[in-house]
Write a protein that binds this DNA or RNA. Structure first.
Length: 855
RNA sequence: GCCCGCUUGGCGGAAUUGGUAGACGCACAGGACUUAAAAUCCUGAGGCCGCAAGGCCGUGCCGGUUCGAGUCCGGCAGCGGGCACCA
């Protein structure tokens, strides 16, 4: 038989799978379902190696689960709205839609050549009205339910381009195009009330046992639940009170000042008559955006003529400052400072000469001197200098302080979250229009559902900075649906994270004339296995968890838990060496060549500096184009390399040698069938009666391989699965008998091997299956079941130690009893020598494993 | 600063969860085939000593538990990630 021609073979099987609609999924409540989903790609131009890894991993799961008899849903689509399309429009003068759809066509072709078991009939792009129409419907439902609302909020404002900037467009506090320092500007914006689910989102993490621990932790920290007290200070010579939040109400007797945020209403009020304060507030706002500077930024305060009365002592007043480190967005925008037990408060107190009084001390100690470091211990401590709290531990003192505040009517115990509501407004063209109309008479009026979708206009220009929807001559001018008078359309579009927060639900019924068919989502959701990069560990996953709950509460689906992804796997990145020419410029891998131990420029021969291995990125030029790899080696080879060596959750390094090795191995697998080391029994050959050792060994190894490989696939240990296939192939090659039994075992081994490699290298597997004259498509074959009886060894190797050091190994019958093992071990020459004639103190025997003679 | 994770040959990594450390692969070396090369096949290999049998050392470092530690416990170091003026 000829050399394996991956290109022709892969095209052949892809065509057959497509003709048979092999991966088409149908809702069928009678069958167990399995929903496999990889994070859908942004259509940026061409696929990259990260996609290849992601979709290979997902395809292994999908094909494996299919073989295990599940009704598998494995869809693909496009996260197609976003800023790059607008940048392309500006730079290349192409329409964002044209640019996006072109990219989709290119990338779809590339993905199809990977031979993924995708149900392409469900494909959609989020920029298509057939998708965003239903997103607008969801928005209206959230609005009705009070989960979408409008409020004033700060945005990054570029004062030169006169435009709002996304966070990623702010570089070192400056606009990425203009280079001008970014200002904070207040704008009325749309928000989703994710904080309404803060507790539930936190509690829900508990049940996500198939999520990586660290992702759950990151989400937990992001939600940031803290328990404390919210209470107010009476103000001397004023009628109003000042509310603060604290997690340490037990330290109230150590208070020495009160500080409020620059954006606090009280600060604004005082600033009206105080130009210096107004200037200070202005200064605070400027540093607000340059977050990198915050760590070093000096803690500054401005004393205002207000005094706060201590809640536990009417004769005790505290000075009030406007401080640059107090955040308006967290808690109440005001704090009380307890310098002895908070480092930042201590620094502030030292700077402004405020009292520092310890109110917590190690247990048994009634005084504590505070130097430059605050005392932060909360375990084995007791309250001191604290009136009725004295002697209590931190937890007890907190409870007592809160009880007292409640009695006084000053406040109560509360829970505060770090999590903020999700700002979804973007002043951009290429996004889903927010379906709302602003009417001077009626206020905010939802677009009637019959008028959905609110279509993006095609005729837009990008020559002016700002939002093209806002510039459009006619688009925003509409009549109010309620009163009929002239009104304005909302020109904000949705954050693209909204698009990706519910796409997994839309895949269940992608053409439905409502966001989702309940019968379909209720059958398919939750996604059984979700796969993607760790970079989405917080935002995308949290937003999706919010959306699923919101969709449940607006009646779109029934999922009780509200959890969209039952299993999550986060893959590592694909990395590559970096190269630099003598002048420091980056070089592509294709521009360099190895010359012995040296690396030189392929054309000029000049020496090249090899840099560290980093994530493939355009800026460092260390990218390999998957299309080129598939052309050269075929999809199976690319897939095999992706699965070899590195565990999927870890970063992997792409190397020329690695892909070559994978290519050689796929060739070798093919040779197992095309140039076998002995006869392969006919398909219908009867099972022989006589079994020579070699044939038995092969069968035993086969069943061991089935068992181990199945485990590996279940646990995402694909690198180990690959190693086991290598081992089994090695044995197959070494098995050379030409008797009937060996020929029979060889057929069994090869046929089973084809099924086992099916999820990883599906085209080659089909080709082998066909070469063996297998029935039907390999795809239709059930996953093999390991026969434990056949897999069992007759003999085992026992390690023999003398006082914990390995001295010999002995080959014995399996399950030999302890006494016999002990005798055999003691009879061993090496063991005797190592014992040096010393008496045996103890012998530890673990059957089938180890004997340890202690002397 | 706080919270996580990782550290095993020249390299990627494996080790049935406390029981033969280094499976499998890559790279390397020697050999076979070939006029030659490629491809393929065979052999070797953690380090040190030794012709060999074998011995000593060895999983970032220090210490502990145990008959036995890559694995468990305590401390330290290095690398990576997340959050970060959150009261």
């Amino acid at each position: 038989m000829s050399r394996y021609n991956a290109k022709a073979v892969e095209a052949k099987w892809q065509k057959i799978w497509e003709e048979r609609q092999a991966f088409r999924a149908e809702t069928d409540p009678g069958k167990p379902k399995y929903y496999v989903l990889e994070m859908f790609p942004y259509p940026s131009g061409r696929i990259h190696m990260g996609h290849v890894r992601n979709y290979t991993l997902g395809d292994v799961v999908a094909r494996y689960k299919r073989a295990r008899g599940f009704n598998v849903l494995h869809p693909m689509g496009w996260d197609a709205f976003g800023l790059p399309a607008e940048n392309a429009a500006q730079e290349k003068k192409v329409h964002p839609a044209a640019w996006t759809y072109d990219n989709i066509a290119t990338m779809r072709g590339e993905l199809q050549r990977m031979g993924l078991s995708l149900d392409w009939s469900r494909e959609f792009a989020t920029c298509h009205p057939g998708y965003y129409k239903y997103q607008q419907k969801l928005f209206l439902d959230l609005l009705k339910k009070g989960l979408a609302y409008r409020k004033e909020s700060f945005v990054n404002w570029d004062p030169v381009d006169n435009t709002v900037l996304a966070n990623e467009q702010v570089i070192d506090g400056r606009g990425w195009r203009s280079g001008a320092p970014v200002e904070r500007r207040k704008l009325s914006q749309w928000f989703f009330r994710i904080t309404a689910y803060a507790d539930d989102l936190l509690a829900g993490l508990e049940e996500l046992s198939r999520w990586p621990e660290r992702v759950r932790l990151m989400q937990q920290n992001w939600i940031g639940k803290s328990e404390g007290a919210r209470f107010s200070f009476a103000l001397k010579d004023r009628q109003d009170r000042l509310e603060v939040y604290s997690t340490r109400p037990d330290t109230l007797y150590g208070a020495s000042f009160v500080a409020i945020a620059a954006d606090h209403p009280l600060a604004a009020e005082i600033a009206k008559g105080d130009a210096k304060l107004a200037a200070f507030i202005e200064e605070c706002r400027k540093t607000g955006t340059a977050e990198a500077e915050l760590e070093k930024a000096e803690k500054k305060g401005y004393r205002i003529p207000v005094e706060a009365i201590h809640p536990f002592d009417a004769n005790w007043t505290l000075p009030v400052y406007v401080a640059n480190f107090v955040l308006m967005e967290y808690g109440t925008g005001a704090i009380f400072g307890c310098p002895a037990h908070d480092q930042r408060d201590l620094d502030f107190a030292r700077k402004y000469g405020l009292p520092v009084k310890a109110v917590v001390a190690p247990k048994g100690q009634t005084a504590l001197e505070i130097g430059d470091e605050a005392f932060l211990e909360t375990e084995n401590t007791q309250a001191i200098n604290s009136g009725f709290l004295d002697g209590m531990d931190v937890a007890g003192a907190k409870r007592a302080a809160i009880r007292k505040l409640e009695e006084l009517g000053a406040g109560q115990g509360t829970v505060t979250f770090r999590l903020r509501d999700w700002g979804v407004s973007r002043q951009r063209y290429w996004g889903c229009p927010i379906p709302v109309i602003h009417c001077d008479a009626c206020g905010i009026v939802p677009v009637p559902e019959k008028d959905l979708p609110v279509l993006l206009p095609d005729d837009v220009t990008f020559d002016k900075p700002g939002n093209p929807l806002d510039h459009h001559p006619t688009w925003k001018h509409v009549d109010c649906p309620q009163c009929g008078k002239a009104a304005r359309r909302e020109t904000d579009t949705c954050d693209t994270f909204v698009d990706s927060s519910w796409y997994f639900a839309r895949f269940c019924s992608p053409r439905a004339d409502l966001p989702m068919e309940k019968a379909d989502v209720d059958y398919w959701l939750p996604v059984d296995q979700y796969i993607g990069g760790i970079e989405h560990a917080i935002l995308h996953l949290l937003y999706s968890r919010f959306f699923t709950r919101a969709m449940r509460d607006t009646g779109h689906l029934s999922l009780k838990s509200g959890e969209p992804f039952a299993g999550l796997f986060t893959q590592g990145m694909v990395c590559h060496e970096t190269y630099r020419a003598a002048d420091g410029s980056w070089l592509q891998p294709a521009e360099v060549r190895r010359d012995g131990d040296r690396v030189v420029h392929a054309r000029t021969g000049e020496p090249v500096t090899v840099g560290r291995t980093e994530k493939m990125s355009k800026s460092k030029k260390n990218v390999i184009d998957p299309g080129l790899i598939i052309d050269t080696y075929g999809a199976d080879t690319a897939r095999w390399f992706m699965l070899s060596d590195s565990p999927p959750e870890r970063d992997m390094e792409w190397t020329e040698a690695g892909i070559e090795g994978a290519w050689r191995f796929t060739q070798r697998l093919w040779r197992l069938v095309s140039e076998p080391k002995g006869p392969i029994a006919a398909k219908s050959a009867p099972m022989p009666g006589e079994w020579p050792a070699a044939a038995l060994d092969l069968r035993r190894a086969l069943h061991k391989t089935i068992a181990a490989l199945t485990q590996d696939l279940e646990q995402f240990h694909y690198n180990k699965a690959v190693a086991r296939i290598h081992e089994f192939a090695n044995l197959l090659e070494a098995t050379k008998g030409d008797d009937a039994a060996t020929a029979w075992a060889r057929r069994e081994a090869l046929q089973t091997l084809a099924i086992l490699i099916g999820p990883m290298v599906p085209h080659l597997a089909e080709e082998i299956w066909q070469a063996l004259d297998g029935d039907g498509l390999l795809l239709e074959q059930p996953w093999p079941v390991a026969d434990a009886e056949l897999a069992r060894d007759d003999t085992v190797t026992i390690a023999v130690q003398v006082s914990g050091k390995l001295r010999a190994t002995i080959e014995v019958a399996r399950d030999m009893d302890k006494t016999a093992l002990e005798q055999l071990a003691l009879a061993n020459d090496n063991v005797q020598r190592a014992m040096e004639g010393k008496p045996v103190r103890k012998v530890i025997v673990v059957p089938n494993r180890i004997v340890n003679v202690v002397v």
